[in-house]
Simulated scan of single mutants.
Amino acid sequence: MALCLGQVFSKDKTFRPRKRFEPGTQRFELYKKAQASLKSGLDLRKVVQLPEGENINDWIAVHVVDFFNRINLIYGTVSEFCTERTCPIMSGGLRYEYRWQDGHEYRRPTKLPALKYMNLLMDWIETNINNEDIFPTRVGVPFPKNFQQVCKKILSRLFRVFVHVYIHHFDSVCSMGAEAHINTCYKHYYYFISEFSLIEHSELEPLREMTEKICN
């Protein structure tokens, strides 16, 4: 029997501390609205649509942070199996390899073990979403002009976590009874990025066949 969500995604499995929304803020209210829609059993294609009268950047910000939290939990469930020995390269099978570049410590695309890549990726995302100049939380402070571009890069890199987990660790996911929960998270993510054209189709190629089966 599959485990419940609380058992599968337990607190001690979280790969990173969860980013939370401040109660009383508009972002928090949007987050609650999005979560309520998810739990209502509505079609995920409808759940991701921008609510009438809401700001698209606020809606994107809420989802980027939520996907960051959820994908942290997903990777946390398999991170003990993702070692330098089992995954010496951050990849998605034999055809796809991801190299890390951040313009600072890693100025050129660098081949890394998957676990090291994941650590750097989550640090990088956390730095961005905690940066008030990129993800402003104060009322009246506008989003920067490059906000959606930053979000596209974050979401594109988070997709690579799905690629690695599905291709290299799905047996572990299934043994924990977590596949239904991860599939739902992936579908939610896929419908959202598709709704707002946030990732180039070429980036999604590694999971194209699986996506066609579970998202169409």
Score class of each variant (00 low, 15 high):
residue 3 L to N: 12
residue 8 V to I: 15
residue 9 F to N: 02
residue 10 S to R: 08
residue 10 S to C: 09
residue 11 K to V: 14
residue 13 K to A: 12
residue 14 T to L: 14
residue 14 T to C: 12
residue 16 R to W: 11
residue 16 R to T: 11
residue 17 P to K: 08
residue 19 K to N: 12
residue 22 E to K: 15
residue 25 T to F: 00
residue 28 F to C: 03
residue 30 L to G: 12
residue 30 L to Q: 10
residue 32 K to P: 01
residue 37 S to Q: 07
residue 43 D to V: 01
residue 44 L to P: 05
residue 45 R to M: 01
residue 46 K to T: 03
residue 48 V to A: 04
residue 51 P to L: 05
residue 51 P to S: 07
residue 51 P to Y: 05
residue 51 P to T: 06
residue 52 E to L: 11
residue 53 G to R: 07
residue 55 N to E: 15
residue 55 N to A: 12
residue 56 I to V: 15
residue 56 I to P: 02
residue 58 D to C: 06
residue 58 D to P: 08
residue 59 W to I: 03
residue 59 W to T: 02
residue 60 I to C: 04
residue 64 V to F: 08
residue 66 D to T: 15
residue 68 F to R: 05
residue 68 F to L: 07
residue 69 N to F: 10
residue 71 I to F: 07
residue 76 G to F: 06
residue 77 T to W: 00
residue 79 S to Y: 05
residue 80 E to N: 14
residue 80 E to T: 13
residue 80 E to D: 14
residue 80 E to C: 10
residue 82 C to D: 15
residue 82 C to P: 11
residue 82 C to L: 06
residue 89 I to W: 05
residue 91 S to R: 15
residue 98 Y to C: 06
residue 99 R to E: 13
residue 100 W to P: 00
residue 103 G to Y: 06
residue 104 H to Q: 12
residue 108 R to N: 11
residue 110 T to Q: 10
residue 113 P to H: 09
residue 114 A to E: 02
residue 116 K to A: 14
residue 118 M to W: 04
residue 118 M to A: 13
residue 119 N to R: 14
residue 120 L to N: 14
residue 127 T to G: 11
residue 135 F to P: 04
residue 137 T to D: 05
residue 137 T to Y: 01
residue 137 T to Q: 05
residue 140 G to L: 03
residue 142 P to I: 02
residue 147 F to L: 06
residue 147 F to E: 11
residue 148 Q to W: 00
residue 148 Q to Y: 00
residue 148 Q to S: 02
residue 154 I to L: 02
residue 158 L to E: 12
residue 158 L to T: 06
residue 162 F to G: 00
residue 164 H to S: 04
residue 164 H to F: 08
residue 166 Y to M: 13
residue 167 I to N: 09
residue 168 H to V: 00
residue 170 F to C: 02
residue 173 V to C: 02
residue 174 C to G: 04
residue 178 A to C: 03
residue 178 A to V: 03
residue 180 A to L: 13
residue 181 H to P: 00
residue 181 H to N: 03
residue 183 N to C: 09
residue 183 N to L: 11
residue 184 T to D: 09
residue 184 T to F: 13
residue 185 C to S: 09
residue 186 Y to T: 03
residue 186 Y to I: 04
residue 188 H to N: 09
residue 189 Y to H: 07
residue 189 Y to V: 04
residue 190 Y to E: 11
residue 190 Y to N: 09
residue 192 F to I: 12
residue 193 I to Q: 10
residue 195 E to R: 10
residue 196 F to P: 00
residue 197 S to E: 12
residue 199 I to S: 14
residue 202 S to C: 04
residue 208 R to T: 07
residue 210 M to L: 15
residue 212 E to A: 11
residue 212 E to I: 09
residue 216 N to T: 01
